[in-house]
Simulated assay, not measured.
Amino acid sequence: MRVTLSDEARQHIALFEDVTGASAVDCVVDETHDQVLFVVAAGEMGQAIGPDGRRVNRLEDRIGEDVELVEDAPTPEGFVANALAPAAVYNVTLSENDDLVAYAEVDHADHGAAIGVNGRNIEAAKRLANRHFDVDDIQLT
């Protein structure tokens, strides 16, 4: 799927790469939840976060919004698991009837982390999974 970036998202990606030294493959400004979502190139999450979270904290200070990072993955299952982190995701299966639905098996103790305050985390995961893999919904099991 082809991802379209707004001018604001492109500017945020340039700043992200300048501050962190990591590559971002997508950026979504989520005004509903006052956050900016970055999809970080696979294998570059540690670089993006930095020691003790210093790089991502510096980025948040520069942007003036909460920043959430999701590591890219080559498959929709891997992407959904990454998008729900730090929740422990044991397995993701896809089911396609009329819609493409990802069923994520999440540790019971981590359901709250996967959902987030007011559904913030699960909604971000759904939005990004839809942008990158045409996943219509994510259900926690």
Rank of each mutant, 00 (worst) to 15 (best):
M1P: 11
S6V: 07
S6T: 15
S6W: 15
S6L: 10
S6F: 15
D7I: 10
D7R: 13
E8D: 11
E8S: 08
A9R: 11
R10G: 09
I13W: 12
I13Q: 13
L15Q: 14
L15F: 10
D18I: 00
V19H: 14
T20S: 04
A22R: 00
A22P: 03
A24V: 05
D26F: 00
D26L: 00
D26K: 01
D30W: 02
E31V: 07
T32C: 09
H33D: 09
H33T: 07
V36M: 07
L37A: 00
L37T: 00
V39I: 00
V40H: 08
A41R: 12
A42W: 13
E44S: 06
E44K: 10
E44D: 04
E44M: 03
M45V: 06
A48I: 10
A48C: 07
G50P: 09
G50C: 06
D52P: 09
G53F: 07
R58P: 10
E60P: 04
E60H: 03
R62W: 14
I63N: 12
D66N: 15
D66V: 12
L69T: 01
L69A: 03
D72A: 11
D72W: 13
A73D: 14
P74T: 15
E77A: 14
F79K: 02
A81E: 13
L84A: 08
L84N: 10
P86I: 00
A87N: 08
V89A: 04
Y90A: 06
T93N: 07
T93P: 01
S95A: 11
E96C: 07
D98W: 14
D98T: 06
L100D: 08
A102Q: 13
Y103H: 12
A104D: 07
E105M: 02
E105H: 07
V106N: 02
V106K: 05
A109Y: 06
A109R: 06
A109M: 02
G112H: 01
A113H: 11
G116F: 03
G116E: 03
N118K: 10
G119F: 02
R120C: 02
R120F: 07
N121S: 06
I122P: 07
I122G: 04
E123V: 05
E123N: 11
E123M: 00
A124C: 05
A124L: 00
A124R: 03
A124E: 00
A125I: 07
K126A: 12
A129N: 03
A129R: 07
A129K: 09
N130Y: 09
N130C: 04
R131H: 05
H132W: 10
F133M: 00
D134I: 06
V135D: 05
D136S: 11
D136K: 01
D137C: 03
D137G: 04
I138G: 04
Q139V: 05
L140F: 08
